[in-house]
Amino acid sequence: MPDLQGYGWLLIDGLMLTLGVAVASMIGALGVGLLAAMGKLFAPRAGRFLIEAYTTFVRGVPELVLLLLIYYGVPTLIQNVAAGFGLDWSLSINPFAAGIGTLTLIYAAFACEVFRAAYLALPPGQREAAYALGLNRGITFRKVELPQMMRHALPGLGNVWMVLVKATALISIIQLPELMRNADIAARSTRQPFTFFFAACLLYLGITLVSMWGQARLERWAARGTLEARS
């Protein structure tokens, strides 16, 4: 067991913040991603174009660039625009909000494609049968299509979660005291970078292993009806 020289509490604090940011960002990404997927499938042409532009831009730009753009660039842009109107505004974004907001926007774009593919994987006969029973569009989506979509989407969403957890390390660049930031502080204080960065690696790996176990159980639970039908 590596000697953390009393800095273990700092890593635990960072781990808790990392998990908080990851969970909040994933919840936001699921909500925004589902809405974006439905927009891509059913919105008018102008709406589909805007959503396609959003997902293409976000998936094509590195996460670090987007984080710096939102945290440093947006306040500066707003201040410059305000100065053009003779206003003296001083604006800053909370690092916690910036981290969650940026990760939500980024991984909502990936979740959007997962949800869209899951919807397209549904047999058309499912919704046709629902309409034949007199169900309207909204009830058909909630009661028939969405539960089956989630079963198809779980593997892809699990991958989104894994990547999102690792991407939380990027928010250390905006001074948010998450796991990597605190590991760096401890490493600089003790001059033992290998010890603390390796400890951070083990903690990230622990999150991944627990997530893989939970995802496998969730996928088995979601597929229980189909497995019984096949047997």
Rank of each mutant, 00 (worst) to 15 (best):
N80I: 00
F194P: 00
I27K: 00
T56N: 15
F85E: 04
L218I: 02
S25F: 08
F141T: 04
G158A: 07
S25L: 03
I173L: 13
R45P: 00
F197Y: 15
I78Y: 00
G8D: 09
G6M: 08
D184N: 14
F198A: 15
L67E: 08
R181S: 07
Q215D: 07
E145V: 11
L4A: 08
A223F: 01
C201I: 13
E178Y: 02
G28S: 08
D13F: 04
T195D: 11
L34C: 02
I12S: 03
T168M: 06
P75K: 05
I70T: 09
K40F: 00
I51W: 08
G14Q: 09
I171V: 15
T56H: 12
L91N: 02
F194G: 01
F141I: 09
G28I: 06
V61R: 03
W89I: 02
S189L: 15
G60Y: 09
L4I: 04
A111L: 04
F115W: 11
W221V: 03
Y119A: 13
A153E: 07
A108T: 04
L50I: 09
V163F: 09
L120N: 11
V58K: 04
L176M: 06
V160Q: 06
R217I: 07
S90A: 12
A132D: 08
A37W: 03
Q5T: 02
E113P: 01
I12E: 06
G33D: 03
Q5R: 14
E63F: 14
L87S: 06
T55Q: 11
V21R: 10
V160H: 06
T18C: 09
V160K: 01
G86P: 03
A36F: 14
A129G: 12
R217C: 10
L11G: 05
G86M: 06
F197Q: 06
L120H: 11
A130G: 08
L203P: 05
R230P: 00
T190G: 06
W221T: 02
L69K: 00
I185N: 11
